[in-house]
């Protein structure tokens, strides 16, 4: 184990796999000497050289599109989209190319590529640089979606994502990049599709991912003092989703609160709620609650942004409603 920040850990995951597999390369805007907009790729250009750490023009369509062609021709690209908001620019390459090729070709192509991209509000970046768009991608058959919440998962999910033979959206939260954690070294992966129980509890299940995990943990600590024992579950991978772990937890607690930073309508929380209603209705003794951002674009003013992002107090309030 080694203490690393989340950003160091995800970088170490890339480095580990690039050392192991010469077909892995990294391409994106300002990932070379500049080291990435948030330092995610710092030092990799010096370590692996310009043939494997490649600065592209500002060209999201060609970044993703070229990766599809390279992956189908035997390489394993890691491509960065500087902000998840910019995926709107290259959505055809994600929606109609990367994730359709294998199926359309009758299973005769593999498209092993990782799209690394930062999400999240909280840094005053306003409506085009702050979104949480995971639900866009979970809706696409053929896509996998991971959203690490801690440094160890940032590294382990990165290695697993690069080794996966399918397109994987690796969504890193800007607000978590500097958060330290204990990280296993060496060839240690976090398998895709496996949830993590962050805290055991018996009265209510809180499902949260990415930056919301920390807030759910704080909320759970406060609730504990008031005599409510919350279990906090981080799915880590949204697609494929470890629904079995969620159902087991709800079977134990009888109550479910889902927390995500994305706005509510069409958010992935709705999918989890529907799955639990379908497959775990008898476990429930209270309605399923969602704690999410409101259905507005992400605002700029710190005052408005604070009101937008779900916080600990909203999670506590949602849980308490279930015990009223």
């Amino acid at each position: 184990m080694k203490t690393m920040t989340y950003v160091e850990a995800l970088r170490d995951g890339m480095r580990f796999e690039m050392n192991k597999d010469p077909n892995v390369y990294l391409a994106g805007e300002d990932v070379g000497i500049f080291g990435g907009c948030f330092g995610q790729t710092a030092g990799l250009y010096q370590e692996f050289g310009p043939e494997r750490v490649i600065d592209t023009p500002i060209t999201e369509t060609a970044i993703i599109g070229h990766a599809v062609g390279a992956a189908a021709s035997g390489l394993r690209p890691i491509v960065e989209i500087m902000f998840i908001d910019f995926t709107g620019v290259c959505m055809d390459e994600i929606l109609n190319q990367a994730t359709k090729m294998r199926y359309m070709f009758g299973g005769k192509a593999k498209v092993p590529m990782v799209i690394r991209t930062p999400c999240g509000a909280g840094v005053g970046a306003a409506a085009q640089h702050s979104q949480s768009l995971e639900a866009f991608f979970t809706h696409i058959p053929g896509m996998k979606v991971v959203m690490p919440s801690v440094a160890a998962d940032a590294r382990g999910l990165m290695i697993a994502a690069i080794r996966d033979d399918n397109p994987v959206m690796y969504i890193e939260h800007k607000g978590l990049l500097g958060v330290e954690g204990e990280v296993p070294e060496g060839d240690v992966i976090v398998p895709l599709g496996k949830a993590d129980i962050k805290k055991e509890g018996s009265d209510v299940t809180i499902v949260a991912w990415s930056a919301m995990v920390g807030k759910a943990m704080s909320a759970a600590a406060s609730l504990e003092k008031e005599g409510i024992s919350a279990e906090v579950l981080d799915p880590r991978t949204l697609k494929p989703l470890d629904i079995d772990s969620i159902l087991s937890s709800v079977a134990k607690t009888g109550k479910l609160v889902i927390v995500h930073e994305a706005n509510k309508t069409g958010g992935f929380g709705g999918e989890i709620a529907a799955l639990v209603a379908d497959e775990g209705f008898d476990y429930l003794n209270a309605p399923i609650k969602r704690v999410t951002a409101p259905d507005s674009p992400v605002p700029f003013s710190p005052v408005l942004e604070k009101a937008y992002v779900p916080g600990e107090e909203k999670i506590i309030a949602a849980v308490k409603e279930l015990f009223a």
Binding site: E51, A62, G65, G69, A72, S73, G74, D92, N96
Partner: peptide, 18 residues
């Protein structure tokens, strides 16, 4: 998708060069 092959072709060519 009209035009979608253009970046994919660049990617296949990238793999040849790589």
């Amino acid at each position: 998708i009209v035009g979608a092959g253009q970046p994919i072709a660049a990617g296949a060519a990238f793999a040849c060069k790589y």
